[in-house]
């Protein structure tokens, strides 16, 4: 009996030790997991979160990248608000985004409606429509600089061939910004694939029921497809609006440098110019802040105007 108890004790002790070791091991395992997660979290903190806080700080300082920043309150904002070029850039940026984002979305929607069925060759057509979206942005800007070139560019040759008058495109103040908007419309591959995926997710029974009820194609599009796509369309529109701040920089930098006059002066380029040509990093930071406040207001307006996420069930 005594012996047995001793045995039992030792068994219990061994179990306890094992459990203790096991627990410790689990916690060290979780430590290892934490280590694996560290690069992502630390990198995000240093490269995304810190920069955003730094922008807010720099917006209220005078800073030229060589001497330490000096706090100067709202002075930056007063200065930039008094500059005409700033307001021109704000207006141009709003014009740019209010045409390019919806046009990209419309193009993506039309292409998705055309290319979502399984048909002969559909895969190749989708790949082809995506091609302009994969071209590196410098190369894309140069290609379009050539296409728009009044003398050498194929666009004017094409117009001449059809019998239409040739244009000066980027050289003319009236057509420069529309030209930039036009070239951005072909970069719609991602939107197209998202919408194709969304369309393929609509249960075929919906279409069959509508067809049985004698609905025309337009009615099916208007009353079934579009309402079901609303959340996706809204999401893509918000995304395109935000991304326009980064995608509009390279074309302006490579093709027009804001000109002719200030016809294509957009905020990202103006901010770049302030920061890296004139080394007024404080001013640039306050412009950056204003740009994202304006973008925020725009996103909110679009969200409200389109009535929130619409139908969210069943997709």
């Amino acid at each position: 009996m005594q012996q047995n108890e001793g045995l039992l004790d030792s068994v219990i002790l061994r179990k306890k030790i094992l459990a203790f070791w096991h627990n410790r091991h689990v916690s060290s395992y979780q430590l290892e997991l934490g280590l694996l997660l560290t690069p992502f979290l630390l990198g995000t903190a240093v490269l995304l979160l810190l920069p955003m806080l730094l922008t807010i700080f720099l917006a209220f300082t005078s800073y030229n990248a060589f001497t330490p920043p000096q706090w100067n309150g709202l002075q930056n904002f007063i200065t930039i608000f008094q500059r005409d070029v700033f307001w021109i850039a704000v207006r141009n940026s709003l014009v740019y985004v209010s045409f390019s984002a919806p046009l990209q979305l419309l193009g993506a929607l039309l292409l998705a409606l055309l290319l979502y069925h399984q048909r002969y060759g559909v895969r190749e057509y989708r790949i082809a429509a995506f091609l302009p979206s994969v071209i590196p942005e410098v190369a894309y800007a140069l290609i379009w600089l050539w296409i728009f070139n009044p003398l050498y560019g194929p666009l004017n040759k094409l117009l001449g061939w059809v019998g239409l008058p040739e244009q000066a495109w980027l050289v003319n103040t009236a057509t420069a910004l529309p030209s930039l908007i036009f070239m951005s419309c072909f970069r719609l591959g991602e939107g197209m694939f998202v919408l194709i995926a969304a369309l393929q997710g609509i249960p075929p029974a919906y279409f069959q029921a509508a067809a049985l009820d004698g609905g025309s194609r337009w009615q099916i599009l208007r009353h079934i497809i579009l309402p079901l796509l609303t959340p996706w369309l809204l999401l893509l529109l918000l995304r395109d609006i935000l991304l326009s701040t980064q995608s509009s920089f390279a074309p302006v930098y490579m093709m027009t440098e804001g000109g002719p006059g200030y016809a294509t002066m957009l905020l990202p380029y103006l901010i770049y110019d302030e920061a890296f040509s004139h080394f007024r990093l404080g001013h640039a930071a306050s412009m950056l802040l204003v740009m994202f406040v304006v973008m925020g207001i725009l996103l909110w307006l679009v969200y409200r105007l389109l009535g929130g996420w619409g139908y969210t069930d069943e997709i």
């Binding site: 997660l37 240093v46 920069p51 955003m52 720099l58 990248a65 995304r239 935000l242 920061a275 950056l288």
Partner: peptide, 24 residues
Amino acid sequence: WLVGLAIILLMVPSAAVWLPRYVI
């Protein structure tokens, strides 16, 4: 939480960090 964070980070346009990254 982490998935939420990752999705929010997706929405940060790179234009927002060019200038401060230069400083950093």
